[in-house]
Simulated assay, not measured.
Amino acid sequence: MSSVPPAGLLTVDATTPAVLVLPGPLTGDQVPSLCDDVRARLESTAAGVVVCDVAGLGPPGLATVDVLARMQLAARRAGGRICLRAAAPPLLLLLELVGLRFEVEGEAEEREPALGVEEAVETGDAAV
Rank of each mutant, 00 (worst) to 15 (best):
P5I: 00
P5K: 03
P6W: 00
A7T: 07
A7L: 12
A7Y: 01
G8C: 00
G8H: 05
G8T: 12
T11Q: 13
T11I: 14
V12A: 05
D13V: 13
D13R: 13
D13T: 15
A14M: 07
T15D: 04
T15C: 03
T16Y: 04
P17E: 00
P17N: 02
A18K: 10
A18T: 11
V19P: 05
V19Y: 00
L20D: 01
L22S: 07
P25C: 09
P25V: 09
L26F: 03
L26E: 03
T27R: 15
T27Q: 12
T27M: 07
D29P: 06
D29M: 13
Q30V: 13
Q30R: 15
V31Y: 06
V31I: 15
S33Q: 14
S33R: 14
L34V: 11
L34T: 11
V38H: 09
V38G: 04
R39I: 09
R41G: 06
A47P: 10
G48E: 05
G48K: 06
V49L: 02
C52T: 08
C52M: 09
C52Y: 03
V54T: 14
V54M: 07
A55C: 04
A55D: 06
G56M: 09
L57E: 03
G58L: 10
P60L: 00
G61I: 09
G61H: 12
L62Q: 10
L62N: 09
L62K: 07
A63P: 01
T64V: 13
V65L: 07
D66K: 14
D66S: 14
V67E: 01
L68W: 03
A69K: 13
A69Y: 11
M71N: 01
A75Y: 05
A75H: 08
A75G: 07
R76Q: 14
R76W: 02
R77D: 10
G79V: 10
G80D: 00
R81Q: 12
R81T: 13
I82A: 00
C83W: 00
C83D: 05
C83R: 15
L84D: 06
R85A: 07
A86T: 08
A87Y: 00
A88T: 14
A88G: 04
P89Q: 13
P89S: 07
P89W: 09
P90L: 02
L91M: 11
L91S: 03
L94A: 05
L94D: 02
L95T: 03
L95I: 06
L95C: 13
L97H: 13
R101S: 09
R101V: 10
F102S: 08
E103H: 14
E103R: 15
V104Q: 06
V104R: 09
G106E: 12
E107C: 06
A108I: 12
A108T: 15
R111F: 08
P113W: 04
P113V: 03
P113T: 08
L115T: 10
L115M: 09
L115W: 07
G116Y: 08
